[in-house]
Design a protein around this nucleic acid. Structure first.
Length: 218
DNA sequence: ATATCGATTATCT
DNA sequence: GATAATCGATATG
């Protein structure tokens, strides 16, 4: 039994207005929603950790470089997939937010797999034998993209509000209990702002939450 | 348990 | 030419 299963498995898409808002608001409300890849196996996974990027004025955001070939999707209409390649190795998935012209987005950092786990394991190239291995499926922005077969060539610009898309976001009635925020992971600029959102105590989040104010001995 | 490090390439300065 | 919204392996306590 998964951590966040629900009675029905009916999944309905989110509308464009949901994404046409401040990325912080979208990030918070995206927790508990479901990412869907309609393959034969029907890949679905619950969103348990995301980060907000605030557009051109956010030094940590790719959009800070302006509207370029790489970032053009961010400046387009909301609800579309922005996929980029990083460290010569990994893809990361975002969804564009705010009205067209504004470049805010939300990065997907961790998912809890719900269905199609065998196909995810195959895509990840790992064997699932216990809960520890299950976490390695979709816990981390690079891992979840590999599990879902997400690449820039295939998915960048995809409309995530349409069930006709090969990748979309829906909701199944699940309501998160406790939501927590922390600083964003792996960035150097604007690293102090608490723009990472996660489901508290969910085992699939990519890193443990810092305990308290970092105290070190003098 | 945490720390450090190498891989590998698109993108920007 | 330097850097990067990461991962997995290896080293060390």
């Amino acid at each position: 039994m998964s951590q966040t299963s629900t009675q029905t498995s009916q999944i309905r898409p989110l509308d464009r207005a949901f994404f046409s808002r401040d990325p912080r608001r979208v990030a918070r409300e995206l927790l508990g929603k479901v990412l869907v890849r309609p393959t034969a196996a029907q890949l679905t996974a619950r969103i348990v950790e995301v980060e907000a990027y605030l557009g051109e004025k956010d030094p940590a955001a790719h959009a800070a470089a302006g509207n370029t070939a790489r970032t053009s999707v961010l400046f387009g209409p909301p609800g579309h997939a922005y996929v980029y390649f990083i460290y010569g190795n990994h893809y990361c998935l975002n969804v564009s937010c705010e009205p067209e012209g504004q470049a805010g987005c939300v990065l997907f950092r961790a998912l809890e797999p719900l269905s199609g786990l065998e196909e995810m394991a195959q895509a990840r190239g790992i064997e699932v034998r216990g809960p520890k291995d299950l976490i390695k499926l979709t816990s981390g922005p690079g891992r979840l993209c590999e599990a879902f077969g997400i690449t820039r060539a295939r998915d960048n610009g995809c409309d995530l509000t349409s069930t006709a898309s090969s990748l979309w976001i829906g909701e199944d009635g699940y309501r998160p209990r406790a939501i927590r925020t922390t600083p964003r992971i792996g960035i150097t600029k604007a690293a102090d702002q608490p723009l990472r959102y996660l489901l508290d105590a969910n085992p699939f989040v990519s890193r443990k939450v810092p305990v308290g104010p970092g105290r070190s001995l003098p």
